[in-house]
Design a binder for these strands. Sequence first.
DNA 1: AGCACGCCGACT
DNA 2: GTCGGCGTGCTC
Length: 836
Amino acid sequence: MVNKEMRVAEVIVDVPTHDTDRPFDYLIPAELQEEIHIGSRVQVPFGHRKVIGYCIGFKTTSSSIRLKSIYDVMDLVPPLTPELVELGKVMADEYLCPTITALQSMVPAVFKGSYQKVIHPSSEMSENIFSLLNPAEQQLFKILAARGEYTWEEACKIPNMTRRLLRKLVAEKRIFVTERIEDRITKQKVTWVWGKDIHKLKAALSSLSARAIRQKEVLQYFIDHPDEIELPKLLARLQTTRSTVKKLVEQGWLYWEEREQYRDPYKNRQFEQTTPLPLTPEQQQALAGISKPIIEEKFHTILLHGVTGSGKTEVYLQTIEEVLRQGREAIVLVPEISLTPQMVQRFKGRFGERVAVLHSRLSNGERYDEWRKIRRGEVQVAIGARSAIFAPFQHIGLIIIDEEHETSYKQEENPKYHARDIALWRAQAHHATLVLGSATPAVESYYHARTGEYEWIQLKERVHGRPFPQVQVVDMREELRLGNRSMFSGALTGSLIECMKRGEQAVLFLNRRGFATFVMCRECGETITCPHCDISLTYHQTNQTVRCHYCGYAEGLPQICPHCQSKHIRHFGTGTQRVEAELKRQFPGIQVIRMDVDTTSRKGAHEKLLSQFREGKAQVLLGTQMIAKGLDFPKVTLVGVIAADTMLHLPDFRAAERTFQLLMQVGGRAGRHEQPGKVVIQTYSPEHYSIRLAASYQTETFYHQECLIRKRHSYPPFCRLFTILLSYPDRLGLMKYGQEIVQFIRNHAPTNCQLLGPVPPTIPRLKDRYRLQVLIKFQADPIVTARLKQTLHKLRNLFDDKELRISMSREMVDLISDRKVLMREQSEEIEILSKH
DNA sequence: AGCACGCCGACT
DNA sequence: GTCGGCGTGCTC
């Protein structure tokens, strides 16, 4: 089809499967010509349906014979920028997901409209058609005509009748795309107050009686601050009430009016203006180092490797100022867990209205508001968790990923992207600077820094020159030998008592993973497992139940063993609840705040518990991962790690890295202020290098060691990984498929790929489906990668069994030129390995 | 993924 | 004949 005047849009439709994952061509009606852009969200006819799609390009010809027209353009401003559309294509390719899935992950949920179908009487109905209906059909049609319509849900209950009405053309189906409008109503009413005439205000001040203290305060405020202000803010700042202001307005001294404005999750909160802090020489150097590529507007990646307490945040803030001076924008990624009010406070305090905050606690509507501020260019800084990396800025100068090693930067659902990779791509597209900040970088990032792929800037000193806490590693096997069967070693008990005596606080850290309390029969040794997943059920003391942490299955705590009927059944393991009970037993009168899934599931409970601890309402804070991160408590002088090696033995090649990072982070919690701190690490494998080196702060040595091991066993960054996860309702069938898949990959994939598996994953059965996993290690070579992806694509259509689910993901992708990495490895110029 | 079409067996 | 179940293939 060729037509000179014709304008055709390429549309990715909202049908997330692989066989519809390509652009479909549509004609653009004349009246939409001006409205449609790349990135526009449109409604299009698709098959016998109407669906939402995204316009990703234009052409003047199409190879399709029959072109349909776009129904409508849904938004005035396209939700996606051309850059993000491009990124969507790359993501689909990299992460093996449908393009629409990639695109939808970039925009707030409000854009993911839903579809509503209704059955209507046909618009052109004539009597003779009606006479063709049989009595039952006539009866139904009369009901339909009387009601005007019936919904699709109702239609599904009588599918054949409906089908007959549709086929005999007496009824028709209409599809509505329902926008989530309720979330998008962004305006709310807020009262603004002002009183600009200072002379008048002064006159008012003297005319008031001496007793009207509150009113005078308000007037004085406006004399000092002539700008208008929202009423809630004013009330918060002056600690007064609405009635005080109302009196002044009624007397004609002040004015107020209701205005519509964005919802603001931080309304009624005032942020204390903060000014740049003086930097240490080291910080200054870091600032200069990061500013250089920003000023030159060159793509550049920097690993900011700074010990805990070295003041990375202040460096971030001042580099952002540089970017803003240039008229460009900055994205700051922070792990969800550290997106605390203090953190937000710091950014809002420095950049005020120029910041948008995106975190998971926002409602859909609030999230949309923040997003829209970014899209419209009303803010220049976006701070948020993982998905904030898609902030639709158009002149990005800087992307910062704080705590870059954090696992929360990897999305577990499709598209299984890593924010670090997206950041690299976007920084490249914008000629921006990417800063990866961490005290304990990912091994991959460290490697790239040491080999010169990233610039490496170190901050080795703590800001106030405070010493690192002294670390004591306790061998728990030795404790056992000495007859100490409690979960607290002598050293930890002693330190705890001392700490209490001095009136200071302690943090006790327990790694939840692999440490949940399970229920076991002491007679036959069987554990209680989930009937749907091959996982031990976890004992919950609060309501005397056992629960599956994966599928949510729950039952009452059994009194007799289901296997041997023995009564000798009890719970084992060391959950936080047990530690708490044990603490209270050993230290009578001790006040403990426990933080785990049970105590923090309620909204805001997390923050509440932490502030209680900060206020000194308890001597001990006991918790899991969540307390290890970025929290700063002045009075904490002791940190105890109950069992450092619980994650060490997980079947994960990053287990050692995780353990090391965790211990370093935990150590950073102690003694950040005046009092010197102490860390006690209890472990059953004190000789392990990750524990040993963390305890002695030998960061360098650890990374060298870890790189050596990764190199020897061929793990990232020395190869790339694909994981394939199969799931199927029956075990034997799954094993058969597993074998066939491995065989298929062996036959088709490039020869230098290494296949591991199929092996049962950590969770061998989940929600009544058995699981198998295949790991593919492959070379960082674009040809190999492309060939492998092709093979995996074919794999999708290999089996004709709906029950077989295949999910694939890439472990550690980095979009740095694969070829460069390959060449470097071949020439064996690995400085870091030759050194050790 | 939906949705329609079409083939085939069961029933008025 | 008509009804309803299910497999197959397409969507610009």
